[in-house]
Design a protein around this nucleic acid. Structure first.
Lengths: 183, 183
DNA sequence: CTACTTTCTGACCGATCGGTCAGGGTCTGA
DNA sequence: TCAGACCCTGACCGATCGGTCAGAAAGTAG
């Protein structure tokens, strides 16, 4: 009972997104995904070269937006960098809540995979921008707390509407970020 | 070549703490721990009933302090609750950085284990206190962002002295927490 | 009809996981 | 001297993991 072309492909992708978000990448087996779709594990591996490729396709849109943000951030300094980093990351985290949830806690290992090359550097630059490119420990610590906390909050508050969550997070960041010294 | 009583026990505990903090609970095998200690996997399971018991003994001190904080928090309201929750959790997170790192991202599954019963409720109460027992979404979101972010920051900034990290985190929390409405 | 492609599957593979077990070495007290 | 407690280990177990493969089923083009 072969289905229409690429229909199963999308179903597998959707099922994987749901499972990964709940039980994590390592905590979800190909068998789990196949069961949710209603096909065999071999079918999953017919549509995707391997488990890693499945994850890579799942994260691609979010990573694209992150790269765009990184490009826009290049060259900006001080308050302008802080503002863009805050607004850009909050928006990204709210829109890609599920993708963010997938990475929860598995960051270090997943970053070793070629599909996620440079993500570590990009998020380092993002953190640096949110700190206003300051090297004061207080500013760097605040930036990390906020970025990590926002990720966690977006993964957790799945029931809050986008607008409301975005507004609350932005207000929090503006309150919490260490102001840059006037030049 | 049997060693002195309980010497190996402590070495296994220390090795497990190190490995768990880096690669997580699920990402660390008993074989990994045994290799780091320089003994066999069977020896690890001679000293600890199972992998879960090893984790439980590792987390016991941190959990004890968390319970104490929860007790002190009971009954307090408004600003007093916020202050104590902030100071108490920041101190706990800084002191037990490694234990906090272990739980990174594996919270939901680990909480199912009997050794961690009620931890979820305690951290819910802690979050509620930090939000000043307010039900405004902004306050609840800020509290979650801060608690999660602090955990992440403590796990990441292993090189910063306790005092400095604690001061920076406390300053951040005081800036970021939504003030409670005056009664 | 036949020949070919696409989709899908059960059976199987090697590796690794947490955990068990019988037994060997060493120390100690009677 | 010798029995027993303590510490430790190699060999092994069943389960599960990601991944492979030959081939069945169904649609399509000639």
């Amino acid at each position: 009972m072969a289905r229409a072309v690429s229909e199963t492909h999308g179903e597998i992708l959707a099922a994987a997104a749901r499972r990964f978000a709940v039980t994590g990448y390592r905590g979800t087996s190909l068998q789990d995904i196949a069961r949710e779709v209603g096909c065999s594990k071999a079918t999953v591996l017919y549509h995707f070269a391997n488990k890693e490729a499945l994850l890579a396709e799942l994260m691609a849109p979010a990573i694209g937006v992150l790269r765009d943000l990184d490009d826009q951030l290049a060259g900006r300094t001080g308050t302008a960098a802080q503002e863009l980093a805050a607004a850009g990351f909050v928006d990204l985290a709210v829109r890609f809540r599920r993708e963010i949830a997938v990475l929860r806690g598995e960051f270090p290992e997943l970053l070793c995979q070629p599909a996620f090359a440079h993500i570590q550097e990009i998020s380092d630059r993002l953190r640096d921008a949110l700190a206003g490119h300051s090297d004061r420990p207080g500013a760097r610590i605040a930036a990390l707390v906020l970025l990590a906390g926002i990720s966690e909050a977006c993964a957790e508050f799945a029931d809050i509407p986008d607008d409301e969550l975005r507004a609350a997070l932005l207000a929090l960041v503006r309150r919490a970020v260490e102001p840059v010294d006037a030049p």
